[in-house]
């Protein structure tokens, strides 16, 4: 079975550095890479009636925007140098989704940047990197 790595990507330059590092590691052991972009979403948040009505349409728009303006250009950029790379977009809690993707694709390692886009919330609620390191079933590489 081929080796797979999962990399978390949130659009920040730190997470791009994580991808670059993961590619280096993947090349060394002939692994393939799954770049995961997670749209933060809680099924327990409160919505107004208007938002409930429009949610399905909004979700479609958000997914296509993420696909067209985030994932496609990103994959295209790295594919020139490394073709064993694919992207997934999911909704949910970042840590939970990264762990679930890792399980689904059978990945053996997760790569994430130390700080994401929101360093303030990281400080208040704990960072994605910290939570992953504490809870993931596979080794987690945190890129500074």
């Amino acid at each position: 079975m081929s080796i797979k790595f999962v990399v978390g990507y949130d659009g920040s330059s730190a997470s791009e550095a994580a991808i670059a590092f993961a590619i280096k590691q993947a090349k060394l052991c002939d692994a393939s890479l799954v770049v995961a972009h997670v749209l933060e979403w809680s099924p327990y948040s409160f919505l107004t009636k208007q938002e409930v009505e429009e949610r399905h349409r909004r979700r479609k728009e958000e997914l296509s925007r993420a696909e067209e303006s985030v994932m496609k250009p990103l994959i295209a950029k790295y594919q020139k140098d490394f073709d064993q790379i694919e992207g997934v977009i999911r909704y949910g809690n970042i840590v939970e989704v990264l762990m679930s993707i890792t399980k689904d694709v059978g990945a053996s390692q997760i790569f994430v940047a130390r700080t994401g886009k929101s360093s303030f919330t990281d400080r208040v609620f704990g960072s994605v990197a910290g939570s992953l390191a504490a809870h993931a079933d596979v080794p987690v590489t945190i890129i500074p």
Partner: peptide, 9 residues
């Protein structure tokens, strides 16, 4: 995920 959940409804 991302659709309105039963809890939200």
């Amino acid at each position: 995920a991302g659709e309105v959940s039963h809890f939200q409804a």
